[in-house]
């Protein structure tokens, strides 16, 4: 559909968001990513039943951990959409980027 979205978003492919580990999210933040978000299927439509619910739990867990160490929990988010929703994907990418710009750079960067 060639919908424009911000160039600072780069995608790492996983078979299901259920595969996304707390460690992966933390590692990205630790290495200096300003934000990380997971995009899973709509709730209730996971091809593997519940992967996206598990991912949401992990995202929430990571948000809590960030809070505990004094980082903004909202650098990590979870979004849901169906594979036919290109425009929504682009809208989320914009939303996340704007949001992260508001938070400013990751303080862990270059440390």
């Amino acid at each position: 559909m060639r919908l424009e979205y911000p160039g600072n978003v780069k995608i790492i492919r996983v078979p299901c968001t259920g595969k996304v580990d707390v460690m992966h999210l933390l590692r990205a933040i630790q290495k200096g990513a300003d934000g990380v978000y997971c995009v899973g299927c709509l709730e209730g439509t996971c091809h593997y039943n519940e992967g996206n619910f598990r991912c949401r739990e992990r995202v929430n867990h990571v948000r809590m951990l960030l809070e505990e160490v004094g980082l903004e929990s909202d650098r990590v988010r979870m979004y849901n959409l169906s594979s036919g929703e290109g425009p929504t994907f682009a809208a989320y990418a914009k939303e996340m980027t704007e949001h992260i710009k508001g938070l400013g750079p990751n303080p862990l960067k270059n440390k």
């Binding site: 996983v14 078979p15 299901c16 259920g18 595969k19 996304v20 580990d21 707390v22 460690m23 992966h24 091809h47 593997y48 519940e50 992967g51 598990r54 992990r58």
Partner: peptide, 22 residues
């Protein structure tokens, strides 16, 4: 099914999903 849920929950990271290893 290759979804990888077990690999992410394993506390000792002793399960790996081929082609999507940690």
């Amino acid at each position: 099914h290759g979804c990888g849920v077990c690999t992410a929950v394993c506390p000792r990271q002793t399960i790996q999903l081929s082609f999507y290893e940690d």
